[in-house]
C-alpha cells in the first residue's frame, strides 16, 4: 500500500485522510500512521502546490546552470554540492553523468539577479571550474502536469 499511497499523493497532495482511507479500503488511523511514519523517514519530504507563476503578476525567472567542479578527496561531490544547495536562491541541485557535474536550478526575480548570483556566489567557489547559465523562457510541462492544456470532458454524458 505504501507505494500506491505515495503515487496517489504525488499527484494530489491535498487528498484528505478520510478520502485516502476510503480509496485504500482501510481506516483513517492506518493512513495517518503511514503518512507520519513516511514523513519521519523523509520518504515524504513535503507537500507542494504546483504553480504556473507565468499567470500571476509575480516576476520570476528560472535558470538551469551547468556546473563543472573538481570533486574533493574523501568527499566526492557531496561537499561542494552542499556549499551550493545551501543558498536560498538554489531550488534544485542534481549530480549528473556526462559533460558536466551538477545541474543547479535557480530562481530569481530578474535575469540580472540570477546572473549576479552566478557571478558573485557560484562561479567564485573554489572547486567550481566553470558554469553555463540557461534561462527558462516558457514552462510547458512541469512535474507531469501540462500547464496550458484545458481539460474538458467531451464524452457523451450518458452511454451504455
Amino acid at each position: 500500500m505504501k507505494e500506491q499511497l505515495l503515487y496517489a499523493l504525488e499527484n494530489h497532495s491535498k487528498r484528505t485522510v478520510k478520502d485516502l482511507a476510503a480509496m485504500f479500503g482501510t481506516s483513517e488511523d492506518v493512513i495517518s500512521e503511514e503518512l507520519t511514519q513516511m514523513e519521519k523517514e523523509r520518504i515524504i519530504c513535503g507537500y507542494h502546490a504546483l504553480i504556473n507563476w507565468d499567470k500571476t503578476n509575480t516576476d520570476k525567472v528560472t535558470a538551469l546552470i551547468e556546473v563543472r567542479v573538481t570533486p574533493q578527496r574523501g568527499e566526492g561531490f557531496d561537499k561542494i554540492a552542499r556549499r551550493i544547495y545551501m543558498f536560498e536562491e538554489v531550488k534544485s541541485v542534481y549530480l549528473m553523468s556526462g559533460g558536466f557535474d551538477l545541474t543547479v536550478i535557480i530562481e530569481g526575480a530578474t535575469m540580472k539577479e540570477v546572473a549576479l548570483f552566478v557571478g558573485q556566489k557560484l562561479a567564485p567557489l573554489e572547486s567550481v571550474l566553470s558554469t553555463a547559465t540557461h534561462f527558462v523562457l516558457k514552462k510547458y510541462k512541469d512535474y507531469g502536469v501540462i500547464f496550458e492544456e484545458e481539460r474538458k470532458d467531451e464524452r457523451m454524458a450518458v452511454t451504455p
Binding site: 464524452r155 457523451m156 454524458a157 450518458v158 452511454t159 451504455p160
Partner: peptide
C-alpha cells in the same frame, strides 16, 4: 436520460460507459 442531461448546463454525469 441522455436527452435530458444534454439540455442541462452544469449537470454532473455518472452515466458514462467509457
Amino acid at each position: 436520460f441522455f436527452d435530458i442531461v444534454t439540455t442541462m448546463e452544469d449537470a454532473i454525469s455518472l452515466g458514462v460507459g467509457e
